[in-house]
């Protein structure tokens, strides 16, 4: 086995650099319309891509996850805030899994 501490140092360093460099290098507000728009849309695409269909395999059963997904979408659309939507999703999974 190689030195675990060296592994740990390498992974932490690489991960930090990836996160840090763009923040350190792009300090001005970008004025180019295309890049400005692109960066504005990034969170919506990344989070949507990461949510679905991955959410379906996040719990013990596809059905509890699907129920949580649908309910969370509705509650979020109806104006529930972040902590509420997240808790409701958890409760739905817990409740549905009690019955299946």
């Amino acid at each position: 086995m190689n030195n675990i501490y060296l592994y740990m140092f390498i992974m932490a360093a690489v991960t930090y650099l990836i996160r840090m460099l763009p923040l350190a290098l792009i300090k001005r507000k970008i004025t180019n319309k295309f890049f400005k728009s692109f960066l504005y849309y990034v969170p919506f695409v990344t989070l949507a891509v990461m949510t679905f269909p991955a959410i379906l395999s996040a719990t013990d059963s596809v059905w509890s996850a699907l129920a949580a997904f649908v309910v969370a979408m509705i509650v979020a659309y109806a104006g529930g805030g972040l902590p509420i939507v997240a808790s409701v999703a958890c409760v739905v999974v817990f409740a549905v899994e009690l019955f299946i």
């Binding site: 989070l47 996040a58 949580a68 969370a72 997240a86 999703a89 999974v93």
Partner: peptide, 18 residues
């Protein structure tokens, strides 16, 4: 299992309202 879905619920709460 229930807590595992919290992060996704959060993502939904972020992207849906706007």
């Amino acid at each position: 299992s229930a807590l595992g879905v919290a992060l996704y619920g959060m993502f939904i709460a972020i992207i849906v309202p706007p």
